[in-house]
């Protein structure tokens, strides 16, 4: 984890309340792995004392750029969405542990994302394809207005879109379209806790990795704000430092 001074190079609204930002990082001395998050300071004064953990949707280590995607939920993300091209941002990059990419020894991967859990799976999908792994993605959103990155994912493999209200793609939840017979070597999921619970329940016994969302304090493992109990014994894991990605059977959601 390193502190980086970043400049907002591009900003796009890609769906309802959802923004994509390209950040140019002065010195990319840590190259984030898929699933790691960027911990971003909001404003320069003391109005916002907590950074926001934001998903990384792509990294270009040659151009020194990070692509982040976030949804405006409250005051902090709203302020972030109002940053203008050229503004400087104070970002901690390379936070936490991401999805394994290098040592998977699998041929096929199933990616299951929900809402603002979709962005890290895009960076993951690109890296998996580089390893020669076939990727199928199931992406869930609230409504048609919330859907983003369908085309981007489709360039990397099969994509199925699910909306809760049925206004686009399949109506229902991501678990409704998870294949009953699995021919994938491992699944990778990121989204709200309810979705993670449903997915891990449905795919019990399969090898899989989950990424957990939680309100964070320091984001570096010092404050014990974001913890999750481990499945085996009485211990715990720190989501910001030991996660946010865990093996599906490692923690209790």
């Amino acid at each position: 984890m390193k502190k980086a001074q970043a400049v907002l190079a591009d900003k796009r609204k890609i769906a309802k309340d959802t923004y994509e930002m390209e950040l140019t990082v002065e010195e990319m001395n840590v190259i984030p792995t898929p699933g790691q998050f960027a911990h971003i300071r909001i404003g320069n004064g003391s109005a916002h004392m907590l950074r926001r953990p934001i998903s990384i949707a792509d990294v270009d280590p040659i151009q020194n750029t990070l692509t982040i995607i976030f949804k405006v939920i409250g005051g902090g993300t709203n302020e972030l969405s109002h940053c203008q091209v050229g503004d400087e941002l104070d970002v901690l990059i390379g936070c936490g542990q991401g999805y394994p990419v290098e040592d998977l020894a699998i041929q096929k991967a199933l990616l299951i994302g929900g809402g603002i859990g979709v962005p890290p799976l895009y960076y993951l999908a690109k890296r998996l394809r580089e390893q020669g792994i076939e990727v199928t993605s199931i992406l869930g959103f609230q409504t048609k207005e919330h859907v983003f990155y369908e085309k981007e994912f489709s360039l990397l493999g099969g994509v199925q879109i699910v909306t809760n209200d049925g206004s686009y793609g399949h109506k229902g939840f991501v678990t409704d379209v998870v294949p009953p017979v699995s021919d994938f070597g491992s699944y990778f999921t990121c989204g709200p806790t309810g979705m993670l619970k449903a997915v891990t329940h449905q795919l019990k016994g399969q090898k899989g990795y989950i990424s957990i969302e939680e309100r964070m304090g320091c984001g570096i493992g010092a404050c014990y704000a974001c913890v999750v109990p481990i499945a085996d014994g009485e211990g715990f894991r720190k989501i910001c430092k030991d996660g946010p990605v865990f093996k599906a059977e490692e923690v209790v959601l």
């Binding site: 003391s46 109005a47 907590l50 309100r215 974001c226």
Partner: peptide
């Protein structure tokens, strides 16, 4: 001590609330 359930922190205007629970 394991401490309290999560969420354990919330941002407030120029501050924050925490209830870690002495973990």
């Amino acid at each position: 001590r394991y401490g309290n359930q999560t969420p354990r922190v919330a941002e407030t205007a120029s501050g924050m609330l925490n209830a870690i629970g002495l973990q």
